[in-house]
Simulated assay, not measured.
Amino acid sequence: MRQVNDMNSNRRQSTINSRRGLYLVLASICVIVAVLALVGCAGSGTSSAGGETTGAPSSDTATPSAGANSKMLIVYFSREGENYWNGGRRNLAVGNTQHVAQILQSLTGADVFRIRAADPYPDSYEDTVARNVQEQNSDARPAIADPLPDISGYDTVFLGSPVWNMQEPMIMRTFCENYDFSGKTVYPFATYAVSGAGRIPEDYAKYCRNATIGETLAIRGEEAEQSRPQVQDWLKDNGLAVR
């Protein structure tokens, strides 16, 4: 009888030990799962224990600017094709003003909007001259092909164009008259044959409503492609960011 009782006691003890072992295994699994969950959160979340942000940077960190709270936009019109060149004519694959705009963008990281005419100008130099005279005489506002950009987020706007008959092409006025430039500084840049900047600074003061007009950069068309030093000096002289 004592032997049976001993056997029953042993069985009960074995059962208890088995249960204790199972509890220990389950507890260990819970601990492992909790640790893995913490590791996963630390690797994929946005903040570490020290408060340092991890993961991909905000897009704002890549925003080009002239200062802590500044953003710049380059707006330009340029014409390739047959152009005046040292008293003669030359066919250009890239317009002179486009060369300057590209240099300016590379130095500042500014956003860019190129003005394109809804009715493109002719490849012929003489035909373009004739059309420009007609547009000036009629005070025309040639249509722009693409939707105009929202400039509300910019406080520095570079306006670039060739000089045609002592002034900006009339399509530049089409652009300017669409905006209120309050709180913005407009920096004109121009490429020319013989006239320098012509009347461009005065015209932008008139047509860029409420803008502050900065110093104008004027570059001979024949020198546009190699004008990086001039553009760089102009930016520095005006306290604008250079990359």
Rank of each mutant, 00 (worst) to 15 (best):
M1C: 06
V4G: 09
V4L: 14
M7N: 01
N10P: 04
R11A: 11
R12S: 15
Q13D: 10
S14C: 01
S14H: 02
I16K: 13
N17W: 00
R19C: 07
R19F: 11
G21Q: 14
Y23W: 15
L26W: 09
S28P: 04
S28K: 01
I29D: 02
C30P: 08
I32T: 14
A34G: 13
A37C: 13
A37E: 10
V39G: 08
V39S: 02
C41H: 11
G45M: 09
S47D: 00
G50S: 15
E52M: 09
T54D: 06
T54P: 05
A56I: 08
A56L: 13
A56F: 12
T61S: 15
A66S: 13
A68Q: 11
N69Y: 11
L73K: 00
R79Y: 05
E82F: 05
W85Q: 03
G87W: 06
G87C: 02
R90P: 07
L92P: 01
A93Q: 15
N96M: 04
V100L: 05
A101F: 03
A101G: 12
S106Q: 12
D111H: 12
D111W: 03
V112H: 01
I115N: 10
A117G: 10
A117V: 10
Y121L: 01
S124I: 11
D127Q: 15
D127R: 12
V133R: 14
Q136T: 00
S138Y: 04
D139K: 15
P142C: 07
A143D: 12
I144M: 01
P149S: 02
I151P: 06
S152W: 01
S152H: 01
G153S: 09
G153N: 06
V157F: 05
V157C: 01
F158K: 00
N165F: 13
M166W: 14
E168Q: 13
M170H: 11
M170R: 15
M172H: 04
T174M: 04
T174A: 00
D180Q: 06
G196L: 11
G196C: 11
A197G: 05
A197T: 08
G198P: 05
I200F: 12
E202T: 09
A205H: 05
K206M: 09
Y207E: 08
Y207R: 10
C208R: 03
N210P: 08
A211Y: 00
I213W: 02
I213G: 01
T216M: 03
L217K: 03
A218W: 03
I219D: 04
G221V: 09
E223F: 05
E223T: 01
A224Q: 00
E225L: 05
P229F: 08
Q230K: 13
N238W: 00
N238R: 12
L240K: 00
A241S: 15
A241W: 02
